[in-house]
């Protein structure tokens, strides 16, 4: 019995040490961003960008302050599914879609395109949640 408990604890410890989600599409995008000049993603910086404000605009206007929760479009009131990969892994299954939303939302929020580094950081952070 004791042996089983030890095995369970060791297994749980190993699992918790793994990156939260292994998604081939995310890996593909992160590689692409590196090819475009980004260094290794820094999730902490992605988090900073997420909570930063450009005037009155920021990611949290629509996505809410907790990426694991459902957001609400600030203008149309439509529900926006969670961004945290652990809650809504479907978000990160199609790289074309990820790029589409980076394009639209960076332009709206920051008034410019996001750099490859910013995209890598943010994607890596959301994928780790």
């Amino acid at each position: 019995m004791k042996k089983i408990s030890v095995i369970l604890i060791v297994t749980a410890a190993c699992l918790s040490g793994l990156p939260a989600q292994a998604s081939p599409e995310v890996d593909k995008l992160l590689q692409k961003y590196q090819q475009q000049g980004a260094a290794v993603a820094v999730p902490e910086q992605g988090k900073n960008l997420w909570y930063s404000k450009n005037g009155d605009r920021g990611c949290i206007n629509c996505h809410g302050s907790t990426p694991a929760d459902t957001g609400r479009h600030v203008r149309t009131n439509k529900a926006i599914k969670p961004m945290a990969a652990s809650v809504n892994p479907e978000r990160y299954q199609d790289s074309k879609k990820v790029e589409k939303w980076f394009l639209r939302n960076c332009k709206w929020t920051l008034g410019r395109l996001c750099t490859a580094q910013e995209k890598a950081n943010t994607l890596d952070w959301l994928n780790s949640l």
Partner: peptide, 12 residues
């Protein structure tokens, strides 16, 4: 669509 009632709704 780039300025769709104040939102960016660009499409490929």
């Amino acid at each position: 669509l780039e300025d769709h009632f104040g939102e960016n709704a660009e499409l490929d």
